[in-house]
Design a protein around this nucleic acid. Structure first.
Lengths: 236, 236
DNA sequence: TTATGTGAAGTCGTTCACAGCC
DNA sequence: GGCTGTGAACGACTTCACATAA
């Protein structure tokens, strides 16, 4: 615990991208795709960053972790940069996703464009409500329309095994979430996206990301409340 | 630009809570409420932090921005702390929320427990699809069941004005989002929660928070891909 | 001349470790 | 003795400003 040699993951030679950067790459990617669809071929960091809602310095610093994909004095080739970001993100290969919980939220995810268009294939739908089990839901797996039947919760492990899904999405009520989580982990899933408002306990080999809709609103409310005290006290 | 005296908002006397802390307060609040429901009266930072998935040092540091609500050698009184956090978050007063877009996602939000239980009241539902307009949807406004009719998009400004809603939620497809946003801003909304996968342009008096479901998946996929290279290279 | 890529400086957030109080 | 509250050390992220290359 004395010297800090070799500690702290020294970001060896371009590898080891900061989390904050990783979180922005998908946005860059999406904006690049939309530019490409608009027929734009070259773009400057200034212009692209503005469309992404970040500063140009931040954008360039982010890209510098991936490599040098721009041309000084010119800018970035849209399709070249798109390719490298998508490769870094792993959008090149298709990821199998199992969704547990086919209520409104689950259905929203299934019908969400960009879900399938960004390298994700929904390979399994699971629920435990009798009314929902057996229902056939149409989704698009990598461009092709596919009808998926909602399967009962007991088959979760079988489905994960058979489809080799890598990502599990928990879209159940809060009280089922930990149980579903445990079973996803037991069946080999190591990446979980959790929409239930609970803190999941998992082994540290498993990564959980959490989206809590109410939390986002509460953060907004906090700032809204603050504005009441100091309406326009931005300037010194 | 020479000396840094007075710059950088010196966090005057307890005011000015770091963003990272604000983002965690809702989680602390939720866990405290569940402890309270379980009959727990006192809790240590260690125990509570574990349930929230953070370190106890971080938890105590976060609380220190709000004030000193614990007792040394003992811990925190659950209901006392709950009260102070909820007051800080503004959950004490009810916030009016207008939801634009009553597809699967909008419905998921409407039926989301904890939405209404945390000080939010859905006061307006807006959509522009003829099949949906006029539909009556039951929600709970601060405990009471209320039936809300879905109103046409043209009435958005009227509804915001009449209900004095403070928060707008955009749950529309991407291509309508900016237009809806502009109209929310024009009608006086200064806090927006955006689920559409676009970067919204707003005046800087308006705060936007964004939830992009696919982005979260892409971040997971990034880490999943990384694991392929170095399966268990955590230990030196 | 223009716009990228990047060290260096600065800001923000987390962790440590211990003083202070029960 | 135990647990909170907090300065100080540390690390992560952002911004600055300029060397570098087309």
């Amino acid at each position: 615990m004395s010297i800090s040699l070799g500690k702290g993951r020294p970001r060896e030679a371009g590898r080891g991208i900061p989390d904050a950067t990783v979180a922005r790459l998908p946005v860059y990617h999406r904006v690049l795709v939309s530019l490409s669809e608009a027929g734009v071929q070259t773009v400057s960091s200034e212009a692209l960053a503005a469309k992404c809602g970040v500063s140009s310095a931040k954008f360039r610093k982010d890209l510098s972790y991936l490599g040098s994909y721009g041309t000084r004095g010119v800018g970035y080739d849209v399709s070249y940069l798109t390719y490298h970001i998508s490769r870094e993100l792993g959008s090149a290969q298709p990821w199998g996703v199992v969704i547990v919980g086919v209520g409104n939220l689950g259905r929203a995810l299934i019908s969400y464009r960009g879900f399938t268009s960004r390298g994700f294939a929904i390979v399994g739908l699971v629920d435990n409500h009798p009314d929902v089990i057996g229902e056939s839901i149409t989704t698009s797996e990598l461009g092709n329309l596919v009808a998926l039947k909602v399967r009962p919760l007991v088959e979760l492990e079988t489905i994960v095994g058979a489809t080799k899904a890598q990502i599990g999405v928990i879209a159940t009520p809060a009280d089922c979430a930990q149980g579903v989580c445990d079973r996803l982990v037991a069946s080999g899933i190591r990446s979980i996206l959790n929409f239930a408002p609970v803190v999941l306990e998992v082994p540290n080999t498993v990564e959980v990301r959490k989206v809590d809709l109410a939390v986002e609103l509460q953060i907004l409310a906090f700032h809204e409340q603050r504005r009441g005290y100091e309406p326009e006290a931005m300037n010194a």
